[in-house]
């Protein structure tokens, strides 16, 4: 079982990202689950989304999760919420920030000694898609860190999932995914 927790603000696309990732993984024959905690469900409110992936049908519906990966797609959430809650010894963090990994770890002591990777998904999204929607770049970074799929296969799959959007937006998302894949450290 692979488990992922997304930390996001409502409106940044964590649910869409989690569902998109589940959709891609499902086409490879694995079983998937994607869900979210909505809380007060106001745009901008901190929220979490979740992925489960397994070789067998996923029957566990508890919301409690000790994640293998934590994605943080809003830079402030590292400081305003505990992104390490219910962590495991080998939990891997991919965090959106303008800081370097070292600067980030120094500014948030909870991340000390943890496996942390950083990438500026907000900047990438602004420069490619033209809006601060950091969900698809995060998935590009995840492909690099996890080695889950070949990036070209992943981009092709995402093209299908984004299929209903204008071609310009799809192209921009592909650029964003590739840039995050290349830039995550």
């Amino acid at each position: 079982m692979l488990e992922i927790r997304w930390h996001s603000r409502a409106g940044q696309g964590a649910v869409t990202g989690a569902k998109g990732l589940a959709d891609v993984i499902s086409t490879t024959g694995k079983h998937v689950q994607a869900f979210a905690f909505y809380g007060s469900a106001k745009r901008g409110a901190a929220m979490m989304a979740f992925n489960r992936v397994d070789d067998k049908v996923i029957m566990n519906h508890e919301k409690y999760m000790e994640p293998d990966f934590v994605f943080v797609i809003d830079p402030a959430l590292v400081f305003t919420s505990d992104v390490t809650v219910n962590h495991k010894e080998n939990t891997i963090y991919i965090i959106t920030t303008h800081m370097s990994t070292e600067e980030l770890a120094a500014s948030q002591p909870k991340l000390a000694g943890k496996k942390v990777y950083t990438v500026d998904c907000i900047k990438i999204a602004q420069e490619t898609i033209g809006r601060a929607i950091p969900n698809t770049p995060m998935l590009g970074a995840f492909m690099k860190i996890s080695g889950m799929y070949d990036i070209e296969f992943f981009k092709e799959s995402m093209k299908r999932i984004l299929g209903k959007l204008p071609q310009k937006i799809i192209d921009a998302n592909m650029l964003a995914i590739q840039r995050a894949f290349d830039e995550v450290k």
Binding site: A18, A22, D23, V32, A34, F35, A36, Y38, I58, H61
Partner: peptide, 12 residues
């Protein structure tokens, strides 16, 4: 169906 736990949970 369970609100959110099924209604908003994507699965195959």
């Amino acid at each position: 169906q369970d609100g959110f736990m099924t209604s908003h949970t994507a699965q195959g």
